[in-house]
C-alpha cells in the first residue's frame, strides 16, 4: 500500500508540517547559531566552537547546577505531596474526583505570573504573612521573599498539576482486583504498594517526575519573581545572553546544552513507555 495514502498519514500531515516548520526549524537555527562567532546576528560566518569552550570554562556551571538541583528537589517534594491525592482521585473519591480534577486544573488556566504575584503579596515584608504575625504575635517575619526556599515554594506550587495528573493516570491503570489478590496472598499494605501499585503505576509516575523535572529545568519566572537576585537559573542566563548582552551565539550554546540535557531525559523516558497504553488506557 502507498504510504502517503493511509488515512493516518493524511490526518497527521497538517500538524506534522506545522510542528516541523515551527519546532524543528527553530531548533536547527539555535544549533547553527551556537557555532557562530560571539555577538554575530547572522549565520553567514565561519563556524567555530569557541562559544562552547568559553561556556564550559566560564561560571555557567553554577546556574546549571542550581537548575538541576532545584529540579531534583522539586520532584522529590512533589511526589509525596501528590501521590496520596492522585490515589484519592483515582480510587477513593468517586464522584468527587471530577470536582477535584477541575479545581486543580483551573489554576493552570490562570497566568503563572498572577499566581506567583500572589505569593509575593503573602511573603512580602509587611505582606499578608508578615502583617498577620505582627498584629497577632508582635513578631516580624520579613525576609521570606527573595530567598531560595521562596523559589522552591513557587516551583512546587506552579508545577504541582504536572506531577499530579500523570500520577492519577498511572494509578488508575492499576486494577483493584490485582491489589486485592496480593492482599489475599498475604501481602501487607506496604508490600502491596511496593510490589503491585508502584510497578503498575510506573508509566504515570515516570511521566509525572520527568515532566515536572524538565519544566523546572527550563523555568524562568519563579526564580525572578520570588527569588529576585538570590540565585540565577539557567533559563535566566539564556534570556540575558539574548536580550541584555545581545550575544545570540552564547545564548544558543546554553540553549543547546539545556536542550541536550532535557532531550536525553525525555528520550530515555519515551523509549520505555507505550503512549497508547498510558493515554488510551488500553
Amino acid at each position: 500500500m502507498n504510504w502517503i495514502r493511509q488515512p493516518g498519514v493524511v490526518a497527521a500531515l497538517p500538524a506534522a508540517i506545522f510542528l516541523f516548520v515551527g519546532f524543528a526549524g527553530p531548533l536547527l537555527m539555535v544549533f547553527g547559531y551556537s557555532f557562530m562567532p560571539e555577538k554575530t546576528f547572522t549565520l553567514k560566518q565561519l563556524p567555530t566552537v569557541e562559544n562552547y569552550v568559553s561556556v564550559v570554562t566560564d561560571s555557567y556551571y553554577i546556574s546549571f547546577t542550581w537548575s538541576v538541583f532545584l529540579a531534583a528537589l522539586t520532584v522529590l517534594l512533589l511526589f509525596p505531596i501528590c501521590y496520596p491525592i492522585a490515589y484519592g482521585m483515582a480510587k477513593l473519591f468517586g464522584k468527587w474526583a471530577k470536582l477535584v480534577t477541575a479545581l486543580i486544573a483551573i489554576p493552570l488556566l490562570i497566568s503563572e505570573n498572577i499566581r506567583l504575584f500572589g505569593w509575593v503579596l503573602i511573603l512580602l515584608k509587611n505582606g499578608i504573612f508578615d502583617g498577620t504575625m505582627q498584629s497577632l504575635f508582635d513578631v516580624s517575619v520579613s525576609g521570606l521573599l527573595y530567598t531560595v526556599p521562596a523559589i522552591v515554594l513557587g516551583l512546587v506550587y506552579v508545577y504541582l498539576p504536572f506531577m499530579l495528573f500523570p500520577l492519577v493516570i498511572g494509578i488508575s491503570m492499576i486494577p483493584d482486583v490485582v491489589k486485592e489478590a496480593a492482599a489475599d496472598l498475604g501481602a501487607n499494605r506496604w508490600q502491596v504498594f511496593r510490589e503491585v501499585e508502584l510497578p503498575l503505576a510506573m508509566p504515570g509516575i515516570m511521566i509525572g517526575c520527568i515532566l515536572s523535572f524538565i519544566l523546572v529545568l527550563g523555568s524562568l519566572a519563579e526564580s525572578k519573581i520570588l527569588g529576585g537576585q538570590a540565585i540565577v537559573m539557567i533559563a535566566d542566563d539564556i534570556e540575558s545572553a539574548f536580550t541584555f548582552a545581545q550575544n545570540w551565539p552564547k545564548g544558543s550554546v546554553l540553549s543547546v546544552l539545556l536542550i541536550a540535557l532535557s532531550g536525553f531525559i525525555v528520550f530515555t523516558l519515551f523509549r520505555r513507555i507505550d503512549l497508547d497504553q498510558v493515554i488510551g488506557r488500553r
Binding site: 497527521a12 527553530p26 533559563a235 534570556e239 539574548f242 545570540w248
Partner: peptide, 30 residues
Amino acid sequence: YDWTGRKLYQRLVLLPIFFPQAVLGLSLLL
C-alpha cells in the same frame, strides 16, 4: 488510525510539551 510511523509521530508531537518554553521562545525569535 493505525499507520506506519505512528509511534514515532506520537513521540515527536509531544516533544514541544516536554520542552523548556523560554528556550522555545528564543529559538522562535532566531
